[in-house]
């Protein structure tokens, strides 16, 4: 474990806490893409298949449980809770995320560490996580105004993988045989997708203005 990876995990955890706060405090999921949340639930379920077979550390196991349960709770709440469900932007959350799932699965069948069920699904989860934010970014562009908690949620979510990139650089420099090309390249694509969001977020912060993404 290094400080970059720990900062990344904490930033990721904060993003989830901000989203839970928004949904439970405001009893609203307006501005949140259910499709992105469903993709994240799929990412964690397919990535942490080793939860009960490989014990890395208490921290690792705990965080996996937190990510799986929180992502499922958010999807369940957005689909099930009548009060929250009413605020879901159903008519603009229309990105066809099934294509993302299919594309990532085909890619995982072609590019993986080992051709085993667990490794192919692990690669699938890495590729899917890289593109899972797309329905959310599309929804924010369509909805125009972005409320503070939603903006902070996306900001922390984007920042976490940027910390992981620093972690991979650090591990590459300090560990003899460290090569994680699948995670590194996907992580770069994932962070790059947030580039324009980061830019408009910085502009709105600098001008102390409301965050608006151009359509």
């Amino acid at each position: 474990m290094n400080i970059f990876r720990f900062a990344g995990d904490m930033t990721h955890l904060i993003s989830i806490l901000v989203l839970l706060l928004k949904i439970y405090a405001t009893k609203s999921c307006s501005g949140i893409s259910l499709k992105t949340q469903e993709l994240y639930a799929l990412v964690f379920l397919t990535r942490y298949l080793d939860l009960f077979t490989d014990f890395i550390s208490l921290y690792n196991t705990l965080m996996k449980l937190v990510f799986i349960t929180s992502s499922l709770a958010i999807v369940w709440c957005m689909r099930g809770d009548p009060a929250v469900r009413r605020t879901y932007d159903k008519e603009i959350d229309t990105f066809r995320h099934y294509f993302l799932v299919l594309g990532c699965f085909v890619l995982a069948l072609l590019l993986h560490e080992k051709f085993t069920v667990q490794e192919v699904l692990w690669a699938f989860s890495i590729y899917l996580e890289a593109v899972a934010i797309i329905p959310q970014l599309v929804l924010l562009q369509r909805s125009g105004n972005v409320d503070n908690l939603t903006g902070q949620y996306v900001l922390f979510l984007g920042a976490y993988r940027a910390f992981y990139i620093l972690n991979w650089i650090y591990r590459y420099l300090t560990e003899a045989r460290f090569t994680r090309w699948i995670a590194c390249i996907s992580g770069l694509v994932q962070t790059a997708l947030y580039a324009d969001f980061f830019y408009y977020y910085f502009i709105s912060w600098k001008n102390n203005a409301k965050l608006k993404l151009p359509a």
């Binding site: 990535r47 080793d50 690792n60 972690n167 994680r180």
Partner: peptide, 10 residues
């Protein structure tokens, strides 16, 4: 060795 095979990152 098995250590490398494990995905030790989240």
């Amino acid at each position: 060795n098995s250590e490398d095979d494990l995905h030790d990152e989240l």
